[in-house]
């Protein structure tokens, strides 16, 4: 369990993190979402005991990060931003070092290292210097050292940044495949990542929480939530204004050969209304769907005002 209360970090006059409080329980996969400079990395650095908070408390599985640092740190597996590693070492040497620093030795160490490298598919490069590895492999080495001791808490700072789509997919699958007994915190500015792996999303802007909830809830904040989008072969002015005057439609947006019809706030059956209108007027439609909501909309609305 993680409890954060009134966590703040100031650099002189600059407020990097402003009064964060939250609580995480096993099974939570939390996504930290926010623009660059929103305080995601700073928060993670404080959670892992690397930076000292200006004020506030963090407790990890009952151990205070500042007064009982080593106990708290032994619960955490951490991938810092950019997956730093000792480049002159081989992944095998590096993972052995991390295992020993985590108090594993002999066969326990070897088991942990081989298990972590198997999970991250590192077997083929174990004896190659890290500096010669591709970005994807380096990231996997970083992930392997984070999961090595089977930690209760996994903190990953932009784990998929700079990876190709296949590698991104692998990392996401790995996170989703983790035991339900763990707490995972992932920071990202990639929106799809949040819906793909997280069951809780916290949007940060200007160092403060601007939204906290399930990814689905986040989508309902989008002005496109519940909107109906139609793909048409031909769009005429006439048609657009006909849709505009349809009962339940608040606004019509046009984008290439698509029309998006926003519902009036309390209307929930817009799709069936639109479909019967189409049948009635005999309009040729190539595709029609209900929008879940657009994350980039939400992201912008939530973060633009606050992040100067």
């Amino acid at each position: 369990m993680i409890e954060v209360s009134h966590l703040s970090k100031h650099y002189g006059d600059f407020v990097a993190v402003n009064d964060l409080s939250f609580r995480l329980v096993p099974g939570d996969i939390l996504g930290f979402l926010g623009p660059n400079g929103a305080g995601k990395s700073t928060t993670m650095k404080m959670l892992t005991g690397f930076l000292r908070p200006t004020s506030g408390d963090i407790s990890i599985w009952g151990s205070d990060v500042w007064t009982d640092t080593l106990a708290a740190q032994s619960h955490i597996g951490y991938l810092p931003e950019g997956a730093p590693a000792y480049e002159e070492m081989t992944p095998l040497g590096f993972l052995n070092f991390i295992a020993e620093a985590r108090g594993l030795s002999g066969p326990d160490r070897d088991d942990a290292v081989s298990k972590a490298s198997a999970t991250m598919s590192l077997e083929s490069v174990l004896n190659q210097k890290i500096e010669t590895l591709s970005k994807g492999f380096k990231r996997r080495v970083g992930m392997a050292q984070a999961i090595l001791h089977d930690p209760d808490v996994l903190i990953l700072d932009e784990p998929t940044d700079g990876l190709d789509p296949n590698q991104k997919h692998e990392v996401r699958e790995m996170i989703k495949g983790l035991s339900k007994e763990k707490i995972v915190i992932v920071s990202t500015h990639i929106l799809e990542e949040v819906t793909a792996v997280c069951n809780r999303v916290m949007v940060l802007a200007g160092g403060a929480i601007v939204s906290d909830g399930a990814p689905e809830d986040l989508l309902t904040l989008s002005r496109h939530h519940g909107a109906v989008t139609l793909e048409l072969i031909e769009i005429t002015e006439e048609l657009t204004s006909a849709f505009q005057s349809l009962d339940g439609v608040d606004e019509v947006e046009r984008e290439d050969n698509r029309l998006t019809l926003m519902p009036v706030s309390d209307v929930t059956d817009l799709f069936s209304r639109v479909m019967s209108f189409i049948r009635e007027k005999d309009v040729t439609v190539t595709a029609a769907f209900v929008e879940q909501g657009r994350l980039d909309d939400v992201f912008r609305t939530l973060t633009e005002g606050d992040a100067q």
Binding site: F50, L70, Q73, P80, P84, A85
Partner: peptide, 14 residues
């Protein structure tokens, strides 16, 4: 500079 300090200082080492 390489960021490994962050890794080192977040390992359970005094």
């Amino acid at each position: 500079k390489s960021g490994t300090l962050e890794l080192l200082m977040t390992l359970p080492l005094s």
